[in-house]
Amino acid sequence: MLNVSGVSVQYGEAVALDRVDLTVNRGEIVAVLGPSGSGKTSLLRAIAGLEPVTTGEIVWDDEPVTHLPAHRRGFGLMFQDHALFSHHDVIGNVEFGLRMQDDRSPPDRRSRARAVLDLVGMAGYDHRRVDQLSGGEQQRVALARALAPSPRLLMLDEPLASVDRERREHLAAELHRIIRAAGTPTLLVTHDLDEAFTLADVVVVLDGGRVLQRGPAPKVWRAPNSIVVARFLGVTTKLRLPVVAGSAATPWGMVTAPPNATTAWVGFRAADLRVDPDGPVGGTVRTVWFRRDHYLVELDTADGPMTVTSSRPPAVGDRVQVRADLEAAVILDA
């Protein structure tokens, strides 16, 4: 397993990573989630051995790899822009890492490369030129190339960023299947919530070079540990409520406040607040956005502004009622 402890990366004065701790266990898919400039790519490059760390240790099982050059770490990386070798065809790209292993015979290399190409659904593409492939196909070849030498750890940099929107969901599922089938512990970095939460078992939220939260994906999604993380994870409506006897009163009912809190911060994602004639809270429609399968509505209410969903478009200025899924509320100490 990978153990990163206290790793910092500095570029001159600028601190890209600040004492980051991270673990990837066997068979685990870990997503590092953060906005642009959060340091996630630096983290990936540091683990890969492409960026020297200023302080800290990177250990694989019991072997320190902090100062091992990239080519001796046995980690695989799928670059965001794939960085396929344009002077090789598809099979040549996939075989590259196998050729670097001296103990493999050419037929052995070929059959292993074919097996990996088959795994990623690119069987029969052996002699196609890589620059003639679509974005999704290139991504599969890049994944096959990274997997072929059987890396101890697979790293993915924004794996779905260069795939068009319609194909992303499908490819995310595919990627998940392939990684599971390969059984390689995987670390991916992304700024995309969908990518992180559909692919990963464990999510690590990174911002400003620091780890803000880590945990199993559903838990992080349900219970962000800070307001910053909650906002980053899509919480758009927030209420500040006084705590009385350990509870806070929302318009939709009581919630349990964090211990010792005097004011509770209660947040909702838009999907958990719905326009409903029987809802207890009323508001005036300020803006309406069309979102393919639903409408996103911004309201002004007595409890402050809210962002809610609606199946039908209300008119601006209408009075509407709102219902909440109280179970999904994010409750923090304000």
Binding site: A48, G49, H71, R72, L77, M100
Partner: peptide, 23 residues
């Protein structure tokens, strides 16, 4: 040459001289 090509080769196990030869 895109520096990522050399990085990709290194990550696939190519020592520096091999990176020079291959890329």
């Amino acid at each position: 040459i895109d520096p990522r090509q050399r990085e990709a080769a290194a990550l696939l196990g190519a020592p520096p001289w091999r990176v020079w030869r291959e890329i």
